[in-house]
Nucleic acid binder design. Sequence first.
DNA 1: AACGCTAATCTAAACGTTTCGATCATGTCA
DNA 2: TGACATGATCGAAACGTTTAGATTAGCGTT
Lengths: 339, 339
Amino acid sequence: MLHVAEAARVSVATVSALINGTATVSPELSQRIEQAIRDIGYKRNAIARSLKMGTTRTIGLTVPHITNPFFTDVVSVIQQAFDRAGYAVMLCCTDEDLNTQDDQIKLLLDRMVDGLIVARVGDGAILKRIVDDANVPVVLLDRICKGVDTDAVVLDNQRAVFDAITYLINLGHRRIGYITGTSDISPMHDRMAGYREALHAAGLPIAEELIRFGNFHEIDGYNATMQMLSSHDRPSAIFSANNPMVIGTMKAIRDIGLSCPEDISVACFDDFPWSDVFQPQLTTVAQPVQAIGEQAANLLLDRLAGNRDAPPRKLVLKGRLMIRNSCRPLGAIAQSMSA
Amino acid sequence: MLHVAEAARVSVATVSALINGTATVSPELSQRIEQAIRDIGYKRNAIARSLKMGTTRTIGLTVPHITNPFFTDVVSVIQQAFDRAGYAVMLCCTDEDLNTQDDQIKLLLDRMVDGLIVARVGDGAILKRIVDDANVPVVLLDRICKGVDTDAVVLDNQRAVFDAITYLINLGHRRIGYITGTSDISPMHDRMAGYREALHAAGLPIAEELIRFGNFHEIDGYNATMQMLSSHDRPSAIFSANNPMVIGTMKAIRDIGLSCPEDISVACFDDFPWSDVFQPQLTTVAQPVQAIGEQAANLLLDRLAGNRDAPPRKLVLKGRLMIRNSCRPLGAIAQSMSA
DNA sequence: AACGCTAATCTAAACGTTTCGATCATGTCA
DNA sequence: TGACATGATCGAAACGTTTAGATTAGCGTT
């Protein structure tokens, strides 16, 4: 900018005024300055600007796994929204690890991001502290934390799983396996509650051996399914509360020599583009990814626009059960349906 | 830092020296400074540091679509690599649009990223100019550009498709449909060359009506497949040169009342985690995503470590044909196999 | 006792912006 | 004609660091 000013024989203040339109500058000087900018190929240095202005027009976004299609879709939507608003997005994958998450959030705050969208991991205590003394707006995505009182957009997970399990029960299933991630994060907790609620509402007992915990990866789903299917009294249906784990479930079913839906019904959380093309076509709980991403972006953009003092807003969206052909009716119901 | 210096009754230079370990500071002052840092909760401002140092320890990464599992996987690997090296990653999705890409690269350069990994889009001319006068190292990912002479990591696309098509030919297929993205990007161009080369090597004619262009999306694959299957002399096999489009192909096959592989064989580029679980299990060309991501990251990290003047390095990796059950033998070959 | 050497510390200038307040023409009005 | 408002431009400080070079203190040599 100094060079531009010199070339145009004006002060840097005038150049700045012209570029930002913060003051009127005469047509004559405007022209000289614009010419100089072109000649020199001047680009404003956003870092210097950020330092002076205290704002970077950059936000931080952390997700546990970017290879999980649910997060991929949401990230994509969020990215587009901020792109439109002239913000850059720094993406971090925490790999479902608490320390990684803390490090990355610190890294983002060091870089003075203007805001944060966090699909958090683990206990919220450290997150809360970090966020409290950095003074940036935060939106919680998909997963809320006790004690962290900020904007959030989440699914009504309990209801969604309640519906899915009830569907299985109505098909005649009585022993329904349930594979979940560690329940220290809210969606897993709430989904489990939906499972229990559905069984309870139907007057069915809860068999603890049918509830298996994994760590969100395919291999965890595989192992959990293997265990369940190897037992003497195996379930007639399995619900996987997490998207990548269902792949493991399907592999285990195949490897053990069973087939879905003939021998065992499967449903899971999160929809895929390919769910209704390949066999079996999975019955899933679809999340409104577009809405989730947009709402999260809007909440943050609203704070960034200056609306700092409004009370925390929590948006709860509804899932949708996509019924396909991976679940079979059982017993009397199957009889009556085939009759 | 000023506050810390005051609280510890030292100069800011000493604080800086201690934090960065750039000079020895006495145990006594060290202790006072550390205490002050804790008391005040001081965090170094990375923006101010970047301004002074001329480096942001941030890199830019642009991909056409983050919802494409291939890019998702590569992004994930790259992200991890830079995370380990203490770099942040700014991710941009260009949505396969040239203007968007140019805008985003400008945005990244404005923010003084130290380097760029680009899975480019469209003509490389503007990219080249932008990159030339910003003086940052660039690594081209997946797609190279004529005229842009930088580090790159790509697949041997021609060979990979040659192998896949030759496999189909060996199964007895003679009319093989080919669905591709617009061929102005190198992988699409090279893959097409592989297709033509394979047919040519087998002495088969190239039927131009069996080659269809789409825009990388599911719907494009759907339409292209619909057209091919509606013709009087439809192909016995279809190869989709792009990952999301194959979903469209499968949907079209279903909607037209055919089934794969009984009525038509299908193979495609890029592997999925679910490819070998659901039916039909797709025969695919798997890219070594881990290696691609790591190599790209390494190339850039090497430049960032100061190795600026080495000549451009181009890494060409090999794809692997994953043979599953979505392709059926045909004619005499089928006879002899069943015999 | 004067000197030089080393180690520890500090002063102050930079990095490239933004912006407040000052300056300076110019024209208007009493 | 002088006072004054207006509009355009500029000077310089500030944002929070890093760092070159200056300063100081301590200590062993000669």
